[in-house]
Amino acid sequence: MRKIFSTLLVLLSLSTSAFAATITDGDIHKGDYKWFQFNIMQSIDNKIPFQNQQDTYFEMEFGGRSGIVDLYGYLDVFDVFDSSKSDRHDGDNFFFKFSPRFSLDYMTGSDLSFGPVQELYIATLFNVGDRDLFEQYIGIGSDIQVPWLGKLGANLMARHVRENYDAGDEGTWNGYILTTNWFKPFVNFENQTFITWQGYLDYKFGADKIADDVDRTNWSLEWFNGIYWHSKRYAVGYGLKYYQNMALFKSGGIAGETSGFGHYLAVTYKF
């Protein structure tokens, strides 16, 4: 066991040393990259408030790195086939998530890594809904090297509410969010395709300014686990998502069932 632990420490130190080299040679753009893809998604029994469970929607997803900026985001366009069978039919049209992070290592010109933590960021997040939803977050972020899993993104941010479906916390700072995300190829084929375990966990907590509303709660959880097959241009996958008090609505109240499991099917084209 001691030998295994020592080996892990060596691997972690090598990974942080390799990162340190990229910020001490003066070229912060050496590791720049970008990606962009279109997804057709089918949601089944998901726990979006007000019975928005079944829908076929279009998703434009993107991300990358440019100097100090690490970026992820997506735009969902609901009921993309204009189907009367969709729970989103004649309802909300879109949801937008935008999450730029700004490297403290690159801005300070210093290697701030320690142990398994490879890099530190000022983390931000924006959640924007079609009608009456606009959340802003800011805090601290990191990339953490985890044995076997690889790089795990983790962020802890404070929540500011501009719009929240007329909840009592609009216009205030109310609560926090802890987010994680990962992308782990675990099966590789000779034709350069591979299978991944990818997902995220978002935990909101401490939203006490709406605790007196019997239909709302001060915490929520979303945990997505996807198994995807990837080629250079395409991906196909299935995701199982666990919800608890989705969007800070208590399950069984005016918003309907907001806790439990939902399912997602995805077909992707990569640019």
Rank of each mutant, 00 (worst) to 15 (best):
T179E: 06
G256I: 05
L8E: 03
L9E: 05
Y264L: 10
R88P: 09
V214H: 15
S66G: 14
I227W: 00
G260P: 09
R2V: 13
F19N: 03
F224D: 15
W197D: 08
E61D: 08
F194Y: 11
F78W: 00
T24D: 02
E190K: 14
S99R: 07
F95T: 08
Q51V: 12
Q244P: 13
I122K: 13
A211Q: 13
G175A: 00
Q42P: 12
F183E: 13
F38N: 07
F261R: 14
Q145W: 05
E190M: 10
D166L: 06
D169H: 01
R131N: 13
M157G: 02
M1W: 14
G63S: 05
D212N: 11
L75A: 04
N188W: 12
N245P: 11
F62C: 05
G63T: 04
W148Y: 09
F94M: 02
Q244V: 09
G26T: 00
A167N: 04
Q198I: 11
Y176Q: 07
D32N: 02
N39C: 05
Y72A: 04
S251W: 00
D45M: 05
G168I: 02
T16C: 00
S86E: 03
A167H: 01
F94L: 06
A154G: 08
G91T: 08
R131D: 14
H29G: 03
Y106N: 15
K250D: 07
F98V: 01
L71M: 00
S83F: 01
D45W: 04
L152F: 00
N52P: 15
K209L: 08
S142T: 06
S103A: 01
W148D: 08
D70I: 03
L265P: 12
N127D: 15
N155S: 10
S83H: 01
R65E: 11
N191I: 05
R101Y: 05
W148E: 14
V161C: 02
D132W: 03
P100A: 01
Y203D: 11
Y228W: 08
F205D: 07
G67P: 04
A266L: 07
I40Y: 13
D215A: 10
T193W: 07
Q118Y: 11
R65W: 06
G31E: 08
L120N: 13
V10M: 03
D25M: 00
S15W: 04
K97E: 15
G67L: 00
E163N: 07
G199S: 13
A18R: 04
E257P: 10
N174R: 02
G153C: 04
E61P: 09
D202W: 14
G139M: 02
K97H: 12
T7Q: 09
A235I: 00
I44Y: 09
